[in-house]
Structure formats: C-alpha cells, structure tokens
C-alpha cells in the first residue's frame, strides 16, 4: 500500500462505445488507484479494455459512467504537458516534424523555450541511443525506432505518471526489453508511477505489480489489493 494521495483514482469508471443494440462495453465499472512510485503491468488479451482504461486514466477520454480523478495532481487540465505522459501503441509521431522536434514538442507546449526544449530532447534521445536520428522525419525511421522516440518524448518531460500502452508491441524482444529497462529506470529515477499495458508476459514479469484484465474488468491483483470497492 502506497502512502499519500493517489495520482489517479477510478471510481466505478466504465466506458461504452456507441448506443443502442450496437453499443460495445469496453470497460466495466472499475475501481482502482495508482500511487507515486508504483510500477504496474496491465495485462490481458486484445479487446480486454487495457487501452480504454489507460485513456481514462490519462484524461484523454471520459467515462460514460463513474468518475476518474487525479487527487495528487489536480484537474484534468493540469495533467499535460509534464505531469502525465502517454505512450501509445501505434505510430504517434507528428509526420511533418523531425525526431528532435517531435521529442521537444511537449516541452515547448509546456512553455519551455525552443532552444532549451531541444537540448532536453537531445538528452532524452541520447538516453535511448536515438540521437543519430534527431534530424530524421518519422517516415524515414522504422516503426520500432518511432516507438522508442515516443518513449523518449514521454520521458523528456520527467512526468509523475507514465502510462504506456503496449510500448513494446512493435519492437523485437531485445529492443522491447531495453525500452522497459529505460522506462523502469526513468520512473525509479524520478519517482514516477509507471503503468504499462501489455500482452507480453515477459514484459509484465519485469514489473513488481500486475493487474489482469478480461472483458473490460480487472480480474485479479497479483500483489496486494490497490483499490477499494
């Protein structure tokens, strides 16, 4: 059990897409909390609701029922840039910007000068051995490299909460392991909470906690219960 206010709290949060007979329940009423320093592996098959839960926790989507709050961070408007970083499973780099510009973008959005943001971004890219790609466009690098750039972009802002949606899905085993290592190191270094959704058990096993999802519900808690009903 972590101390202090939770970074994010889901209180019966559920998400249904569509209406009427074609409505799809992506996430059942969910109760959970994530505290600073926690490192959680969110596992489950495709369509189990992992991405939906991450989007709700990141404040990118609203629950159709229930509530999501960020007691230790503030309101939804205060989540980004800086406090909560999201790493998506698909290509998420802006096509017209170079790798360096993509990495520095959240920092500039956060108010840093362009020059300072570039320096910080360079450092983040170097951490993942990506600095040689700095001037490339997203379409000029591989999918795996793009995913690692997305990780570097997320870490550059030293966020409080890192939400990674299948960050190793497009990577080979070695690269995937390296990315997880970087994420763990970064979260430990900054004391950030880390939640990685994955269907790769080797990734999940690297994380101290594991939540399993099935049919839109968190099934079991492999560690001690982190949420109350």
């Amino acid at each position: 059990m972590s101390e202090g206010l939770p970074l994010v709290r889901c209180s019966g949060a559920a998400r249904t897409y569509g209406k009427g007979p074609t409505a799809t329940v992506a996430l059942q009423a969910t109760y959970c909390e994530v505290f600073a320093g926690q490192r959680i592996g969110l596992v489950g098959p495709s369509g189990s609701g992992k991405s939906t839960l991450l989007h709700l926790m990141a404040g990118l989507d609203d629950p159709t029922v229930g509530d999501v709050s960020w007691p230790a961070i503030g309101t939804r408007d205060e989540l980004r840039p800086g406090r909560v970083a999201v790493i998506f499973q698909g290509p998420s780099l802006l096509p017209p910007l170079t790798v360096l510009e993509n990495t520095s973008l959240p920092l500039v959005i956060g108010g840093m000068t362009d020059k300072d943001a570039r320096e910080v971004a360079h450092t983040a890219l170097r951490t993942l051995d990506l600095d040689v790609l700095a001037d490339k466009l997203p379409e000029e690098i591989s999918g795996g490299q793009a995913q690692r750039v997305a990780v570097a972009r997320a870490l550059a802002g030293e966020p409080t909460l890192i939400l990674a949606d299948e960050p190793t899905g497009q990577l080979d085993r070695a690269s995937g392991a390296a990315v997880v290592e970087v994420l763990l190191g970064a979260s430990e270094h900054a004391g950030s909470a880390l939640l990685i959704s994955t269907h790769d058990m080797t990734v999940a096993e690297r994380l101290p906690e594991r939540w399993e999802m099935h049919s839109g519900e968190i099934q079991t808690d492999t560690r001690e219960a982190q949420w109350s009903r």
Partner: peptide, 15 residues
C-alpha cells in the same frame, strides 16, 4: 490524427 496527437501531448486549443 496529427492534432489528436498534439492534443494528447498537452497542446491547448490556443496552441
């Protein structure tokens, strides 16, 4: 999609 990414990264409407 591009704007969605920028928005997910924290860009405000003004930005």
């Amino acid at each position: 999609r591009t704007f969605a990414i920028a928005s997910a990264l924290g860009a405000r409407s003004r930005q």
